[in-house]
């Protein structure tokens, strides 16, 4: 792909009614195929940055180019563009009363004809993509189950499958493991890494647990009050840097051994 997956220049954003800006990034590039962890204390701006890259933030200042398209601060991007970024939510954001398969199928909505889908008609391509996505995350046997019967780990797998069904080029995961136990968290991180690697998708995952994600990414970006305060490989992230990043939020959320 020509150019970077993400290119931000002089980007700033402030929520309406807030006196302090939530994002202030001079320059940031993420190349296609990179796997990046986004870290920072609570309120550092991780979710805000991910929402921006997902095309869901309006009224920002500066230049933001994502997947070859310059984001318009005044307009919601087209359906076709929104399919290209997949978003994994901390709270899963699934339709609880629906089946696993329907939830994964929902990931195809942007790629279907809007009227056909309202009548419940999905193409062969759609169904193939759903089967492949469910296979990739290992939930084939849950396809007919209702989501509200699933465990947290299973739910996050469904949510990831929904993203994969979109056929995204950029996978954004906002604290995907903070509601999961450590073992499940590892499995979900491994899954995100493997799926991204297999499909050649750029991955940006935010987390409170830098030690846990370090194995699965090639690069760390740390935010503090909306500023990038660290950008480099996991090896370069020293303990005192971590302490600096987290100092204002009290104790480091996870002991660094």
């Amino acid at each position: 792909m020509p150019g970077s997956a993400v290119a931000l220049d002089n980007l700033s954003f402030r929520y309406k009614g807030e006196d302090r800006g939530s994002l202030a990034i001079t320059q940031l590039r993420i190349e296609a195929g990179e796997k990046v962890a986004l870290i920072g204390a609570s309120g550092a701006g991780k979710s805000t940055l991910l929402r921006l890259l997902d095309g869901r933030l309006r009224a920002f200042r500066g230049h933001a180019k994502v997947l070859g398209r310059t984001l318009d601060p005044a307009r919601t991007p087209s359906r076709a563009w929104r399919c290209n970024t997949g978003f994994v939510f901390q709270e899963f954001a699934l339709v609880e009363r629906e089946s696993v398969r329907q939830n994964v199928l929902n990931g195809r909505l942007g790629r279907t004809h809007p009227w056909q889908s309202l009548l419940g008609r999905f193409s062969e391509d759609d169904h193939d993509a759903v089967e492949r996505a469910m296979g990739d995350v290992g939930i084939d046997d849950l396809a007919g189950k209702r989501v509200d019967r699933l465990s947290g780990g299973q739910r996050q797998r469904v949510a990831i499958a929904r993203c994969l069904a979109q056929d995204p080029a950029l996978l954004l995961a906002d604290e995907p493991i903070s509601n999961l136990d450590p073992v499940t968290a590892q499995a979900v991180l491994a899954l995100l890494h493997d799926c991204a690697a297999r499909r050649g998708v750029t991955l940006l995952v935010s987390s409170h647990q830098p030690r846990l994600v370090a194995r699965y990414v090639g690069r760390f970006i740390a935010l503090d009050q909306g500023h990038v305060v660290f950008d480099g490989p996991p090896e370069a992230l020293r303990d005192d840097t971590l302490t600096d990043i987290y100092e204002e939020a009290g104790p480091v959320p996870e002991p660094v051994s």
Binding site: D54, G55, R56, R79, A80, W81, R82, C83, T85, G86, F87, F89, A93, L94, V95, E96, Q102, N106, G107, R108, L109, G110, R111, P114, S117, L118, A159, R162, C163, Q166
Partner: peptide
């Protein structure tokens, strides 16, 4: 979940329906 569908490119009616 509605926000998630929006992120996946769903239209207004699709968000309502699904």
């Amino acid at each position: 979940p509605i926000e998630a569908l929006d992120s996946a490119g769903a239209s207004f009616l699709q968000k309502l329906r699904f």
